[in-house]
Design a protein around this nucleic acid. Sequence first.
DNA 1: CATATGATGGACT
DNA 2: GTCCATCATATGG
Length: 180
Amino acid sequence: MKPVKLKKDFFNRSADAVARELLGKILVKKINGKEMRARIVETEAYFDGNDPASRARQNGDLKKTMQMPAGTILVYGIHNSWMLNIVTDSEDVAGAVLIRALEPLNFSRNCSGPGLLTKSLEINKDFHKKEISNREIWIEKDFFEKNNFETAESFRIGVRNDLKEKMRFYIKGNFFVSRR
DNA sequence: CATATGATGGACT
DNA sequence: GTCCATCATATGG
C-alpha cells in the first residue's frame, strides 16, 4: 500500500480539529535526498485576532499568511528558533497549527520541541509560504497507524494570555513530547 | 534607525 | 521552578 499524503482538504478545517488529527501522522522531510520520517506527537492550534496568543493579532505578514489557503507552510522565527506551522481553514480565515514535537522514526536527532525539530530537519524561512505537499516536505497517513494511542490536552506552552480552552494536544505518555 | 517583545532551549537551584 | 543568550519581527520616529 502506498502512503497517503495529506492534501489541502485535510487542513481546510478549524485549527483545533487539524491539530488533534495531526497526532500520529508522519512528517517526511528530505535531507540530502534522504527521507527523514517522524511521527507527530505534539501540536498546538492558533486562531484569528480574537486569540490573544495568535500572531494574527498583529497586522503583518504572519496574519496574511494565516489567511492563505489551507496546507500552506508558515515559518517564523522567535528567539533563535524557527517555528513550523501549517495554515488551516478556508482562505481569508486566519488559522494555523504549530508542530511542537516529533518522534524520529528512521533517524536520531532531537525533535522534542518546536525549535529543535526545525533545526534537526533543516526547516527554515525558505519553506515559508510553500505548500506542505511537495518534493521536499509532506505529511502522510501512517499506513501502520495504530489508533491505540491516547491523546491528552493542556494549555499552550509559553503564551502569556491563553484561551480558556486547552489548545495543546499530545500523545499521552509519549517520550518525545516536549517537557514542562 | 531604535527599541521592545517573545508560540525557545539549555543551564541551573 | 528561575535565569538569560540571542534574533526575527513589529512598530514608532
